[in-house]
Design a protein around this nucleic acid. Structure first.
Ligand code: ZN
Ligand code: ZN
Ligand code: ZN
Ligand code: ZN
Lengths: 511, 511
DNA sequence: CTAGGTCATAGGTCAT
DNA sequence: ATGACCTATGACCTA
């Protein structure tokens, strides 16, 4: 009672906590042994609700989510699985009060477990305790005959019986706080949600237009591309008016040095994509090499769709920025620039993203939520054929193990391939095509000397990848244009007006 | 403000409301404690949206807009500022019911917060409490360096004046005899506590003004940064951050050593508050542990009131002394010093007195009569809501069992919290904030190692107490300002001219 | 001691 | 964009 001072005189503690022990499920401070497991109050209540109300959960992310102490955006399915894995038993009365509704619960459980137990022994560990583990898309009619509806919805059923129903429906903007960014950097702050990461996210929220409008353009070009000026300035008119032959003949007018171009492009990639690449690299490293399961917010399908659409805008934005910085690009007329940017953005997507498709799964993070589209989501969102195309093309590129610089030079070559796009200044396009080809070849020969992947054969493979990029670009753009993005999986719309992905057109026409 | 006015237009029955409480932000009927503040559904949702979506708000009217219950035409920026000012805090990890301890503090603070809000009414609702309302660079009347009275009182009531009117009176003459300022910074040319007594006293006669006048002024930061307002203009943010780091990087400019600071503050507390603490400790020990009934002089209620008012002067005086001795404080400009001292004295009161509230009674002794305000007197003098708030806040702090040193470091952190007070040299404030935070944390870790109250959780609790101090300070000062101190219990005056208690300004204005 | 229940508060929804 | 209403959560209570 001494306690030094008068600390013990204050009102007694209301709850008994065990600060030394932490929840076996979520690592929060435990409050005792519940249902046979050292658990916190939250997990205890969660387990009780899940069982008594027969709330079905489903994991959208492969079933290996981390169940941490952070309450928001925690995967409910994996939390419940963790409860079971740790050995929670609903009907096991260790101490304390005898469950009042034991009989009722027993009846429900027995009817269900007989159903669940029937197929096989070991695998149904997951389906113990009356917890449906099947895909939530399964209709309630699947429940066994002759018993009360095991999958009865606790609330009034709405039209959506699919996964939106079981995950909080979130609007795009509202979700930001739910983000559990799984950026594997271990330097996560333990305190408030105001971090530089979120700042960066908020920056990403700036629209494509304003971003590009504000961003300083190319470091080098003689002539700036200004999206605000609707009309051609004198300079631009003059440039556009050049005869193609004259153009090429102009000595030093557009003289490009290989070394300088390589240097510029390297810098450009770092500026435009550096952050993403760093984040994604680390993320992929953690997932694949460290075996860490990404922690993901529970989002509805609608949110995912929104994210994808907005992610496309992000791709376009970065593609614009990078193209504008390519040495020589500024010499195109404005119309040509517009055409080339808008007709190549899916090729740019493949260039930037292919490296992060491994093991049939994507390892990049999209949008302000930094959503990780694992294979589950990809299947939900994309048509099987298209998904197969994506996986095939990315795998083909991955076999080359291109560096980002090489990949972007390849993209430039694809962009500037004569005939691939209808532009005014075809001569300049041809010139750039050969220039960037020179750059790539000389890069391959200098940097990959005596490597396993080098030599004429390898160079041929790389140039073959050119075709992959171009075809992927053409096909995908044609495909995307027809999609109905309001429902998933995305399917071609019935004939009529194509969906407009915010981006290119806004970028050029927006004002 | 009549409640019945807007209360009548909503006869519709709503779910669960707390008709007695109104939103601390917009005075609409509240629906509970949200994010730590008694708030309505609207403000709750507004705050959540603002934080999670990082919606930038801009005030176009100077930042002092009235945030009323009417939704139309309400300034979003000022509404959000009000949310922050009332202490809303977004915890991205927690969900569910809020622990009772925190809840009761929130409720208590809110109740007399609204109390203080009511009578202030139409004139200046959101005066200079927290947020920068105007550019501090342009206030020549405040910092006029050439004028003979250094801190001439403004003749007309301005925002800067209302503080001085409601702060207790401190006469410099009384102060001089007691001052033993131990200026810690070696750059000071004052060594008041060191020389002979007479010498020191004669030096003290130079008064605080000259002391402050001599204190080195920091070179005004090139550009102020506002830590609160995050516009989406990345340029501004970048500049601000750069400016800050530049400032902080100034080598040797205001280099503070943690060990030295802790030592200095310890000494300072002992000098300023040592006698009081010894007396009060003994008194409390006798009363509580020995069971002795405190001897209580028989005084009239009027005497008690006078004692309390004068006691407040004592609080301010000691707060001044202590602040001036804090390492780093002298580097503020005089105007900043003045502002910070005058805007934090109730927080200082809580810091110094909380330990002596036990068992719903105060155990400190006030004034020359050493009056002990037992619960009876407290009830006589203070309004129930305010008393409850005092008891709740003191209890919250007492749970931490802070040592005086820890408590004063906490006070310093609260004082130096960027954005809490409008000062010119925000960079220095931020620097001191981090410095004193470092001091406190390292103190907690070294001295409380392996104690029951230690570890990250405890550190978080301590930092949480920061909010209690800050909010108690803000709200109480606002409340006290409206009181009619001529009769007991003290109640807010009816609209008329508020009581004038000259105080801090006198302290600086002196002779 | 804990099972089971309660309910205040978190975040999400959707008509306005 | 707003806010009345909704569900999920978990701290606390009672037996
Ligand atoms: Zn848990
Ligand atoms: Zn999961
Ligand atoms: Zn409100
Ligand atoms: Zn305003």
């Amino acid at each position: 009672m001494e306690e030094g001072t008068f600390g013990s005189l204050m009102p007694k503690k209301v709850a008994v906590w065990y600060p030394d022990s932490c929840c076996d499920i979520c690592t929060a401070p435990a409050s005792g042994v519940h249902y046979g497991v050292v658990a916190c109050e939250g997990c205890k209540a969660f387990y009780r609700r899940s069982v008594t109300q027969k709330i079905p959960h489903h994991c959208y992310f492969g079933g290996n989510c981390v169940v941490g102490p952070r309450a928001k955006g925690r995967c409910r399915a994996c939390r419940f699985q963790s409860c079971l894995k740790q050995g929670m038993k609903f009907d096991s009365t260790k101490m304390g009060r005898v469950p009042l509704r034991k009989r009722e619960v027993d009846r429900a459980l027995s009817s269900f477990s007989s159903l669940a137990k029937a197929p096989s022994g070991p695998t149904e560990k997951l389906s113990a305790e009356g917890q449906p583990t099947s895909s939530p898309v399964t209709s309630p009619s699947k429940t066994g005959p002759g018993s009360s509806p095991l999958y009865a919805m606790p609330q009034q059923p709405t039209a959506s019986q699919d996964l939106e129903r079981y995950s909080p429906r979130v609007r795009l903007g509202q979700l930001v706080n739910n983000v559990v960014i799984n950026v594997p950097t271990p330097t996560q702050d333990l305190h408030l949600g105001q971090g530089s990461v979120e700042e960066a996210q908020s920056l990403r929220r700036t629209s494509v237009i304003s971003f590009v409008a504000k961003s300083p353009l190319v470091p080098a070009p003689l002539q700036r591309f200004s999206p605000r000026t609707k009309h051609n300035s004198c300079l631009e008119v003059e440039n556009a008016g050049f005869e193609t032959t004259q153009w090429l003949a102009q000595e030093g007018w557009c003289h490009l040095d290989k070394e300088q171009t390589i240097k510029t492009v390297t810098e450009l990639i770092s500026q435009v994509h550096g952050d993403d690449y760093a984040t994604w690299d680390a993320f992929m490293h953690d997932c694949i090499l460290e075996g860490k399961a990404p922690r993901q917010p529970q989002v509805s399908l609608q949110v995912c769709i929104d994210q994808i659409v907005n992610g496309a805008a992000d791709v376009v934005e970065k593609h614009c920025k990078l193209s504008l910085g390519l040495p020589g690009f500024a010499h195109f007329s404005k119309a040509d620039q517009q055409t080339m940017v808008s007709e190549n953005w899916m090729g740019a997507w493949l260039t930037t993203h292919h490296k992060y498709y491994r093991n049939n799964t994507a390892y990049y993070l999209i949008g302000p939520l930094q959503i990780h589209y694992c294979i589950y989501w990809l299947q939900q969102v994309l048509e099987p054929d298209y998904l197969r195309a994506v996986l095939t093309c990315t795998a083909a590129l991955n076999r080359l193990n291109l560096t980002p610089l090489e990949a972007f030079l390849l993209l430039a070559i694809a962009m500037f391939t004569p005939g691939s796009t209808e532009v005014e200044n075809e001569a300049h396009m041809a010139f750039l095509h050969s220039h960037y080809s020179d750059c790539l070849i000389s890069l391959l020969r200098s940097s990959r000397r005596a490597t396993a992947q080098s030599g004429p054969d390898f160079e041929a493979q790389v140039l073959g990848a050119l075709g992959v990029i171009r075809r992927f670009n053409v096909i995908t753009r044609k495909y995307v244009r027809t999609l109905d993005l309001t429902t998933a999986p995305f399917r071609p719309k019935e004939g009529s007006n194509p969906v407009s992905i915010p981006g290119v057109m806004d970028y050029y026409d927006g004002f």
